[in-house]
Design a protein around this nucleic acid. Structure first.
Lengths: 340, 340
DNA sequence: GCAGTTATCCGAAACGTTTCGGATGATCTG
DNA sequence: CAGATCATCCGAAACGTTTCGGATAACTGC
C-alpha cells in the first residue's frame, strides 16, 4: 500500500526525483539515489503496475493466445513444453505472461485488437492456431507485435515466427523408411488448416520423388492430429491399401492411434508395418514399441518465441524468422521391410 | 485507441453516463444506454484495463505461482492439466491468468506481497510449492486470497486449498497389493517437504496396519518425485531388502524409474515385483507394463482451484477446502505374489 | 400549489505513476 | 566577473477510468 508519495515524503524528496532515482535515470545525485533506495526498501515500496502501464503504455506483459490449451491437448505435452520455454525467457527479461482465455464464443464477441488493447499487452505469442482462425486475419491488421508458432507469415515488420524445419524432418523420416527397404509408404496427415501439415506432406513427397517412388494420393489420409483420428486413418489406409508396409504420421499422437489400429488388425510393428511419428512427445518413448519419430525442440521454440518477441518490443535488431532443425530419433517402431 | 471520452463526445453524453451505461448501472435511461452501446460498438471502444484497475483496485486477474513450471516437470503433465482446468474456469467467469515467473534468485529480491501488489492480481493460486518455500510463509501474512494445491492449510479466512484424498488413495493402492497376497511391500516416497508425501505415507502405514502387517522403516526410501530418484530408490530397496515383492510409489514418474531399475536387476514386472504408482500421468498407460496407479483428477483440481478462488473474491459463500476422491486404476504392473 | 420523490444526468476528484519543461545554485570559461 | 554550462531537483500535467455528491426537471400525493 505504500505509494511513491509515501517514499517521497519519507525521503524528503519530490515524487519526480523518487521516480527518476528508482528508475535509474541519471540526473539524480548518487547519494540521493542511495537514500531513496533505502527508504523505498524499508517501506516495502513496489510500484503499481496499473498506474505505470497507464502512463507509459508499456506493461512488460506478453499475451499468450493458445488455442490448444484444452483438455484434449494434455496428452501431447507440446504446448506445455513450449510454455516452459517462453516462461523461462520471459523471466530472464522480466516480463510476465498472461494467458488469454479465448473460446470460440468469446472470439465472436471480442476482436483480437480489443483483447490486446484491453489487457495492455505489449506483444502476443500465438500458437496452435488453425490457418482459418479469424484472429489470425485480425492480427495481420493490428499493430501489436506478434510471434507465431508454426505459422510462417512474412508479410509484416511486426510479425515473426518460430517453426521446425518440417520439410526436412518429414524427409528424414521417409528417407529412413526408404533406406529400410520400404516402397509402399502411407502417410497420416493432420488437417489442411495447419501449416505444418502442408510442410510435412511436402517433405514426404520430396523424399519419395528423390528415390523415384511415385506419389500415390490414395496413400494419404487425414487424422486431425488426434489419437482416434490416427487410428481411423490407419484402418482406412491398411484396409484399402494392403500393400503398405510403412506409415509416416504427422504427429506422435496419431502414430499412437495407428499403433492401436495395427494391433487390432492383428499385425505387428515393426515386423509387418513400420511406423514413424513426429514431435517426440513424452509417450513416444514409453509406448511399446517405442516410437521412431522426428524430434522438435519444443522448449527451445517457446524460448525463442519469447526471445524474438521481446527483442522486437525493445527495438533490438532481430532475426524475426526462426526455423529450428528437426532430428530423426530411431527407436523400435521401424524395421526392414518384410521379406527383404 | 478510442477512449471513453471519445464515446462520450460522439454520443453526446458525459463520461460519467457512458461509464455507468456501459457497466450496467441502473440510473441511466434505457434509450440512452442503447444509444451509448451503439456508439461504443461503432467506435470499437474497449475499456483500458490499467485505468480501470488503478481506480477500482480489481483487475479480474489471477496470479499463478507454479514452482513446477520448469523443464523437468514436462514429463508429468500434472501441472499442465491443472492449468487447463484453471484456464477453463477462469474463462467462464471472465478472469485472466498471469503466470508469475519466479526463480529462486528472484524470490530473494521480491517478496510475495510485492509480487502480487505490483501485478495487481486479485488472488493467487499456488502449486508445486515445497512446504519450506519462503513464499508460503509470506503468503500466510498477506491479505490476498489464495488457493493452494496440495497443501492443506486451514489457518486463515482468505486461504483455501484443493487436494486429492491422498491417504485414501495410498490405502487403496496398498490394499490392492495386499489383496494380491503381497506382504513385503516397499514404498518409494517423494520428499519430506511435500504434504502429499506425508499423506501417502500415512495411507501406506494405515493399510499395512489394518491387515496386521508391521511397518518396517527400512522399506521406505525417498525418490524426490523424479524418475532417476525412483530408479535409485528401487535399486537400494531391492538390494537391501530382497524379500520385497511389491513397491508402492508416491508418483508415476518414480514408478517409471523403478520399472527401469527392476528391469536392470533382471526381474520382471509383475511376475517378480508388483508396482503401483500415483497420479495417473499420460505415460502410465503407454509404458510396458501399463502402470497400475492411483488417479488424481488433475483437470478438476485446477478447475476447482480457480472456482474456489473466484468465489472467494466475489464474496460468495464457498466451501474453501476441497478434497477430491482418488481412484485406483488397475493395469498390468501388479499381479499375485509369486508362489501364491 | 407545494413539498417530497424519482429518474436521469453530470462535474470533478481520485487512483499512482511518468515525464515535460523548467528552476536553482554551483561551477566553469575566458 | 559576466555569461554559459552543468548537476540536481521539482511542479504540474497527463494517462483513462470509476464514483461521490450533487443538480435538474418531471412527476407524485394531498
Amino acid at each position: 500500500m505504500t505509494t511513491i508519495k509515501d517514499v517521497a515524503r519519507a525521503a524528503g524528496f519530490s515524487v519526480t526525483t523518487v521516480s527518476r532515482a528508482l528508475n535509474g535515470h541519471d540526473d539524480v545525485n548518487p547519494e540521493t539515489r542511495r537514500r531513496i533506495r533505502e527508504v523505498a526498501e524499508k517501506l516495502g515500496y513496489s510500484p503499481n503496475i496499473a498506474a505505470r502501464t497507464l502512463v507509459s503504455k508499456k506493461s512488460r506483459t506478453l499475451g499468450l493466445l493458445l488455442s490448444a490449451l484444452t483438455r484434449s491437448s494434455v496428452k501431447d505435452n507440446i504446448v506445455f513444453e513450449m510454455l516452459c520455454g517462453m516462461n523461462d525467457r520471459a523471466a530472464e527479461l522480466d516480463y510476465d505472461l498472461v494467458l488469454f482465455n479465448t473460446t470460440p464464443q468469446k472470439q465472436r464477441q471480442k476482436s483480437y485488437k480489443a483483447l490486446c488493447k484491453e489487457r495492455g499487452v505489449d506483444g502476443v505469442i500465438m500458437m496452435g492456431m488453425r490457418l482459418d482462425d479469424p484472429y489470425l486475419e485480425e492480427m495481420l491488421h493490428a499493430s501489436i507485435p506478434c510471434v507465431l508458432i508454426d505459422i510462417p507469415i512474412e508479410r509484416k515488420k511486426n510479425i515473426g515466427y518460430v517453426m521446425t524445419d518440417n520439410v526436412q524432418g518429414a524427409m528424414d523420416a521417409v528417407n529412413h523408411l526408404i533406406a529400410l527397404g520400404h516402397r509402399h509408404i502411407g502417410m497420416i496427415n493432420g488437417h489442411a488448416q495447419a501449416a505444418v501439415s502442408i510442410r510435412r506432406l511436402e517433405g514426404y513427397r520430396k523424399a519419395l520423388e528423390r528415390h523415384g517412388i511415385p506419389f500415390n494420393e490414395r496413400y494419404v489420409e487425414d487424422g486431425a492430429f488426434r489419437e482416434d483420428g490416427g487410428k481411423e486413418a490407419a484402418f482406412r489406409l491398411l484396409t484399402s491399401c494392403p500393400e503398405l508396409t510403412a506409415i509416416f504420421c504427422a504427429s506422435d499422437l496419431m502414430a499412437l492411434g495407428a499403433l492401436q489400429a495395427i494391433r487390432a488388425l492383428g499385425k505387428r510393428v515393426p515386423e509387418d508395418i513400420s511406423i514413424v511419428g513426429f514431435d517426440n512427445i513424452v509417450a513416444a518413448q514409453y509406448c511399446t514399441p517405442a516410437l521412431t519419430t522426428v524430434n522438435q525442440d519444443k522448449y527451445q521454440m517457446g524460448y525463442l518465441a519469447a526471445a524474438v518477441l521481446i527483442d522486437m518490443l525493445e527495438g533490438r535488431q532481430v532475426q524475426r524468422y526462426r526455423v529450428m532443425p528437426a532430428e530423426l530419433i530411431v527407436r523400435d517402431s521401424t524395421g526392414p521391410v518384410r521379406g527383404s
